[in-house]
């Protein structure tokens, strides 16, 4: 094992993994984290803790990760390249590892122009692929990026994100390949609604042998309403929501749209379980943590394995 990560153990044992997500609060409210996290406990194998997502300031990802750790959960510590240079990244990784964070995710990060500090300088000292290399070098070779030796390297199970639907499509699997070459132990994808296009992506990834070198978790997000479906379809960059998916939710009366969204999600999870190369799902129930127990139950993903 490369780490003490629960996610690594679940995947290594061949289980179909389930990860969840938790967005830190916009304030120093510890209780809010605990309340949200409580819904996820025992329901998922690891919980992604987002890092200033959409470039909006929130509580530090490492701090919230530690809270989850103390609650007996496995945090997946997200780190974006937008806000830190290589010095800050490496020192944060050492601190996180020392305090029991075993899993992390390397990301570029949304551009500051989307967030609440559009005036901010954009760091991007290294990109997310170089960040992956940095973490695996720290872990496997016990060296910092600058070359110096590390006394007690951080034992991180390290992942990366992939968007199967960004453009150009032909680069999507190639770039996934670069992330695998950079040492990604696991991959979590952007939310999938276009199953056909995703299946094609997976076919290419399997053909290239990438799914033998990394564990790919397919991203899913329940559509809570027709409004949300339309927003995801039109406003979120790099998101592919087919018209029939929007229609299916919108055809329901308002009070039944959320239920239809969960039904659709369960069907998707069923399909994903059968899809070659898919090692698990990443369930991003955005501000819907309290529905996660119901969703994983109905999708037949309980109980979560104890490994």
């Amino acid at each position: 094992m490369k780490s003490d990560s629960n996610l690594e153990k679940v995947l290594a044992a061949g289980h179909f993994a389930v990860t969840g997500e938790l967005g830190p609060p916009r304030g120093a409210n510890l209780q809010a984290i605990k309340d949200k996290a409580a819904h996820l406990k025992g329901m998922v194998d690891a919980v992604n803790v987002t890092d200033n997502q959409t470039a909006v300031v929130r509580m530090a990802s490492w701090a919230v990760s530690l809270v989850l750790r103390e609650m007996g959960m496995e945090p997946n510590y997200q780190m974006v390249c937008r806000d830190r240079n290589r010095l800050a990244m490496q020192s944060d990784i050492l601190g996180a590892a020392a305090l029991g964070i075993n899993t992390m995710l390397c990301l570029s990060g949304d551009h500051p122009s989307f967030g609440d500090h559009p005036q901010a300088a954009n760091v991007h000292d290294i990109d997310s692929i170089q960040q992956l290399q940095m973490v695996t070098t720290m872990r496997d070779q016990g060296r910092f990026m600058g070359g110096a030796e590390i006394d007690t390297p951080p034992r991180m199970f390290v992942g990366a994100a992939a968007n199967p639907f960004g453009d150009p499509f032909e680069l999507r699997v190639l770039r996934l390949g670069k992330k695998v070459a950079a040492g990604a132990d696991f991959i979590q994808t952007q939310c999938i609604y276009n199953m056909e296009r995703f299946a094609e992506y997976m076919r290419q990834a399997v053909d290239m042998g990438l799914t033998e070198k990394t564990k790919l978790l397919a991203g899913v997000t329940p559509l809570k309403s027709a409004g949300m479906a339309r927003y995801m379809a039109k406003k979120v960059p790099g998101m592919d929501v087919p018209d029939e998916v929007v229609k299916r939710i919108a055809d329901q009366p308002k009070e039944k749209q959320a239920e239809e969204g969960i039904k659709l999600l369960c069907e998707q999870i069923e399909q994903l379980r059968e899809m070659p190369g898919v090692a698990g799902i990443h369930l991003m129930a955005i501000e819907w943590e309290h529905r996660v127990p119901e969703i994983v139950e109905r999708a037949g993903l309980l109980p979560r394995p104890q490994v």
Binding site: C81, R82, S108, G109, D110, H111, S113, F114, N122, H124, D127, S128, I129, Q130, A161, A162, N163, G166, D167, P168, L171, R175, K178, Q190, P237, G238
Partner: peptide
């Protein structure tokens, strides 16, 4: 994002997410 190993996930129809 001055990415050396791009494109990031925000590339859509040839345009940048910003």
């Amino acid at each position: 994002k001055r990415i050396f190993n791009g494109p990031c996930g925000g590339s859509s129809k040839g345009k940048c997410e910003i």
